[in-house]
Simulated assay, not measured.
Amino acid sequence: MKVNEIQISGVKIITQNCYHDYRGYFVESYNQAQFDEYSNLKSSWLQDNLSYSKQGTLRGLHYQFPHAQAKLIQVVKGYIWDVVLDLRQDSPTFKQWQGFYLQDPLLNPNKQLELLYIPEGCAHGFLTISEDAIVHYKVAERYYPQEEQTLVFNDPDIAIEWPLHALPVDIPLILSEKDRQGKTFSQLPLF
């Protein structure tokens, strides 16, 4: 296990060893003792979520307020561009976003599993680049539907640079109605 700090305060890329042979591969994607020891994060995961998305699907940016959720993201199949936006007003990286290409171990050049740890107080979204993708994530707080918040993906105040150029020209951007009708940054509750 290797843990890398990145630009957004508290966000980490965690690389897990993936063992490949003629049958395929095996990876221990999560081990609580190892995670606590190496990542220095004591998260208590309450729920696992799995999403399937077609190419061109953009999900997010989502978060929950006031019961914030830490998340641990991994791509089981395919290739996505994942975005984290810091909504913590006391954070040194407040209002900054960062994007990451995440892919399953068969597509990853180093053939390892990369997980993205997102702390409480950050919004999250992703764009499916591959033909389809399966994303698995753990959350450290239960889901409260009435607290769900959505930042519109193209808010000019945040100016996220979604890599739409990575999609084939004939693939439309696919958004849910909730994501299409998201709020602007100035309308959102902040931590």
Rank of each mutant, 00 (worst) to 15 (best):
K2I: 13
K2P: 00
K2F: 05
K2D: 12
V3M: 13
Q7N: 10
Q7I: 08
Q7D: 11
I8K: 01
I8S: 02
I8A: 08
S9E: 14
G10D: 13
K12S: 05
K12H: 11
T15M: 02
Q16W: 01
N17R: 12
D21W: 05
R23V: 08
R23S: 13
Y25C: 02
Y25I: 10
Q32F: 04
Q32L: 12
Q32E: 15
A33Q: 12
Q34N: 14
F35W: 14
F35I: 11
S43A: 13
S44I: 10
Q47D: 09
N49P: 03
L50Q: 15
S53A: 13
S53K: 03
T57V: 15
L58C: 05
L58F: 06
L58G: 04
R59G: 01
R59M: 05
G60E: 08
G60Y: 01
Y63G: 00
Q64I: 01
A68T: 03
A70D: 02
A70F: 04
A70V: 07
I73W: 01
Q74L: 08
Q74Y: 11
V75G: 10
G78S: 08
G78Y: 08
W81L: 00
D82S: 05
D82P: 08
L85N: 02
D86F: 07
D86G: 05
D90F: 06
P92N: 04
T93V: 13
F94N: 00
W97E: 02
W97P: 06
Q98N: 04
Q103A: 10
D104G: 08
L106I: 06
L107C: 03
L107E: 09
N108P: 00
N110L: 10
Y117P: 04
E120W: 00
G121P: 06
G121Y: 04
A123V: 10
A123W: 02
G125E: 08
L127G: 00
L127D: 01
S130A: 15
E131F: 05
E131L: 09
D132K: 03
A133V: 09
H136V: 12
Y137N: 07
Y137V: 06
V139H: 05
V139T: 13
V139L: 09
V139D: 02
A140G: 15
Q149R: 09
V152Y: 09
P156M: 03
D157L: 13
I158Q: 02
I160Y: 04
E161Q: 14
E161R: 12
E161K: 14
W162Q: 09
L164G: 02
P168R: 06
V169C: 10
P172I: 10
L173T: 09
L175T: 11
E177V: 13
R180V: 01
Q181P: 01
K183P: 01
K183Q: 14
P189C: 01
P189D: 07
L190E: 03
L190M: 13
F191Y: 14
F191I: 12
